[in-house]
Design a protein around this nucleic acid. Structure first.
Length: 233
DNA sequence: AATGAACCCAACCGCTTCTCC
DNA sequence: TGGAGAAGCGGTTGGGTTCAT
């Protein structure tokens, strides 16, 4: 017994969208929004399409903020770097690339970047990604350089963030955090306040690496205690 | 010019997650 | 709290286009 289909396939049109259908969908959403219900939209908009198909067409092609055209080197670098960190989380990766959709990024990876990576012709090596700063915010919310309040040591959120990126434990830790919080966003660690991590590193008398504060004496993670209100992306 | 291979990307499929009652 | 339906997501497919021979 399979899942019930989302629509009556015998009565919906499939395949490429015509300009008339695009116009109908675009004008309906412009006038009414999608109303929180994609399933009901086709009928209201006079379209013989499945709601899922309408949603996909709008999100991947018709949205006014979609960026069409080829990917820039900076975008490629970003995709490579994020893929190395989180794998094929296309929606997460796409969210870091304004105007790009998950489908866009996925297609671009499968047709170009993956091949380059397998051939070792990626624009940058993995080691480069671990020492470069492609993911750092252009305008950090925390003043940089960040001066620890407890020591004279100067640690910037950027340097802490680099330590985070180069830590083999980063993904394991994010999963632990995910379990602890019951959240669904694998990448929420990116919203950690790296300035506070820098402060923790300085005040803990650690050796200055992220792994040194990853767990405390009782084996519990300390990172969860830190503020997580700062979004860097 | 013809044709087969390779490439590209829009669209579909079906599973998972979320939301609401 | 559990179930149903909707939305979100990633993998895959199919057809159009471009390239090579």
């Amino acid at each position: 017994m399979g899942r019930a289909p989302c629509c009556d396939k015998a009565n919906v049109k499939r395949g490429p969208w015509s300009p008339e259908e695009d116009t109908a969908l675009r004008s309906y959403i412009h006038d009414h929004g999608f109303g929180g219900n994609w399933i009901a939209l086709p009928q209201k908009a006079g379209l013989k399409r499945c709601g899922k198909s309408c949603r996909l067409r709008w999100l991947n092609y018709l949205r006014p903020d979609i960026k069409h055209g080829s990917f820039t080197k900076e975008e490629d670098d970003m995709i490579f770097s994020l893929y190395n960190k989180i794998g094929s989380r296309w929606s997460v990766i796409a969210s870091k690339l304004p105007g790009r959709t998950d489908n866009d990024v996925k297609n671009h990876w499968n047709t170009k970047l993956k091949k380059r990576g397998m051939e070792g012709k990626g624009s940058l090596s993995e080691s480069y990604y671990r020492t470069s700063t492609p993911l750092l915010p252009s305008q950090p919310l925390i003043p940089s350089p960040y001066v620890s309040s407890s020591t004279s040591c100067v640690l910037t959120p950027a340097t802490v963030y680099q330590e985070f990126l180069s830590s083999d434990e980063s993904l394991d830790a994010s999963l632990q955090q995910e379990d602890h919080r019951g959240g669904s966003e694998y990448g929420f660690l990116w919203e950690l306040d790296f300035g506070s991590i820098a402060d923790l590193l300085s005040s803990s008398g650690s050796d200055g690496t992220l792994s040194s504060i990853w767990t405390n004496d009782s084996g519990e993670g300390k990172l969860g205690e830190l503020p997580q209100s700062v979004s860097y992306f």
